[in-house]
Write a protein that binds this DNA or RNA. Structure first.
Lengths: 336, 336
DNA sequence: CTTGACTCCCAAAACGTTTTGGAGAATCCT
DNA sequence: AGGATTCTCCAAAACGTTTTGGGAGTCAAG
């Protein structure tokens, strides 16, 4: 309730001593320490956060930018992730502020405001691009940050990401193993690292199998984008018998496209993200997801270690992808 | 990048003048004002947030507590709401921090930490209880806050809420109008205002129709709670022909219960919240939802007005409830 | 008695802003 | 010319903490 000065006065001690007593320094006697603690408890004293932050030169804050652009705000797990992250950060005295990007401003503007105004000690970035100006900016400023997703930045930086390459390669190979030969890819915007990575995985598998890699169509990472991209593939003279989709949202759009063409229900499909909604589509959507639980805690841990100064190379987590098999990936394959 | 002192020195001006120039005061000449602004732009000067906050005695922060308890974290709209709120707050120079409640701590502890440590200028509370200790605490401290949901607090406080009473009364009357006489209520925990309010609406309708109000079972505001409560009602000697459920999650649990009893698919059901998942249940779940769009902006506006000192009475929004008719509310009614 | 080590405490500086209360110069009015 | 007013600017205080660099005492050893 009160401030240090009043508390010190009421105890007949100096501000210094009270401050150090509360922080548990050894150079104040056990007796006074106890006396101070009791008095502080009684009046409910809490140090003024702004003053401490100014003096300590720490903002005690971490910001996460929420892209409002296309693709919405990640899967529904996202809030759980943030919540978990915030909880673990709080245990270290840091709070998490959410920073949506208002229209007319770029995410870079947001970063600038937070970083140059010394409003945060670190940042959390989601939805990285291959060449990500936010990453470059933060690196140039030397402020700690962790990204959800890799980039093609030359300097290493901390990240957590799923191994989309391996996941999409495996999914494609699996289709090949059960007889599919024309396997299409519904790709997300290639400027995003995840979309490019997943596309590369599909392409690698196709080449390993000696198959052409022309059955690829790109769209916005949304239902509508998947719908349009799938339609484009289905209009090809020799259309695909299976579709590997960059995200579940796109896969759900692709399912809609399948319903609109003859024999569309013969076409197998798989997505990525494990959206809860996938369990309710018809057919139920087979998908993939990043392994590992309590992602929020991992992000928090990386952030804290980055703030503590650990080198970026040791703060990179690449998680395996696992299949979530429902029904959409095993449509009967008609003889070609 | 630099601080005010350095900027002032490089311009041959005093700190005062530079500060005032940047803030656009009239007592600095247009010429110097421009000169200062240009220099500030060039070096990318931004005032140190902690220093400003200390001096201004404002935290420039608003916190929202995220209940981790039962009932998860509200509907998926929740993140959108927070994002919208944060965006509008940011326009006024305030940032939104999310404060999940770690296990072992109460929401009250969180409030105390934020308020007494002067970490926030205001708070946003969700999931109010009828008698809500957080509300009482914040009122005793005189710190501005807005709740999502009413309380039974004697002192008025700012809130945004849906008119659950009217909504559930209307839903019940609608069942009555099409011939239902045994209309059950799957209730949420009555300590929550929303659950109590909705229960009262159902009860009022039943009494208006001269029907008994014993077909009511309470459960946790989750699928499992709805499942158990519905089973309890279905075991009654004269079981209900329609169910009014406090939340969609509970309604989805109730649907599961219906599938497990003879003739369960004859029983009509309606929920509340308009969860996206409701469109995919079988049958598709009829539900209700609060009217009004861009809820986040409304919360932000109320918060800002509360901070500005407007009286609580003028900061209360009660929104009407609208039906979202899908299929589950119009099961054929067998002659009793 | 002096010296050094140790214990417990404190005054003052510093963090970087905003704001108060003028000061000096120029301009205006009579 | 003399006083009042206006226009620019500034020194210093204040916000509430943490931290630096000792300053008194006390005690044991020399």
């Amino acid at each position: 309730m009160a401030n240090l000065k009043q508390l010190a006065q009421s105890l007949g001690l100096s501000i210094t001593t009270v401050s150090r007593a509360l922080d548990g320094y050894a150079d104040v006697s056990a007796a006074t320490r106890e006396r101070v603690r009791e008095a502080a408890d009684k009046v409910g004293y809490r140090p003024n956060a702004s003053a401490r932050r100014l003096r300590r030169q720490r903002a005690e804050l971490v910001a996460v930018t929420l892209p409002s652009d296309p693709g919405h705000i990640g899967p529904p797990h996202f809030l759980d992730m943030l919540s978990g992250c915030a909880e673990h950060l709080a245990a270290a005295g840091l709070n998490l502020v959410i920073a949506p990007v208002p229209r007319g401003e770029s995410e870079l503007d947001i970063c600038r405001r937070f970083v140059d105004g010394r409003r945060v000690d670190a940042m959390l970035l989601v939805r990285t691009k291959r060449k990500d100006e936010r990453v470059e900016f933060l690196q140039s400023r030397g402020i700690p940050f962790v990204t959800n997703g890799r980039t093609e930045s030359l300097l290493p930086h901390p990240y957590i990401d799923g191994d989309g390459f391996a996941g999409f390669r495996a999914a494609t190979l699996r289709f090949h193993a059960v007889g599919h030969r024309r396997i299409g890819h519904v790709a997300g915007p290639q400027e995003y690292y995840f979309a490019h990575d997943r596309c590369r995985g599909w392409r690698a598998a196709m080449e390993e199998c000696g198959l052409a890699t022309d059955l690829c169509a790109e769209g916005a990472p949304l239902e509508q984008g998947g719908y349009l991209a799938a339609l484009e593939l289905l209009r090809q003279p020799s259309r695909p018998t299976a579709l590997v989709c960059s995200t579940d949202e796109m896969a759900i759009g692709a399912l809609r496209a399948l319903r609109e063409v003859d024999g569309g229900n013969q076409i197998s499909i798989v997505g990525h993200d494990d959206l809860p909604m996938g369990a309710f589509t018809s057919p139920p959507l087979s998908t993939m997801r990043m392994t590992g639980e309590n992602l929020g805690a991992s992000f928090a841990s990386l952030l804290l270690r980055a703030i503590a100064g650990e080198p970026a190379e040791e703060l990179q987590e690449l998680h395996a992808i696992e299949f979530v098999d429902r029904d959409s990936h095993r449509r009967p394959l008609r003889a070609a």
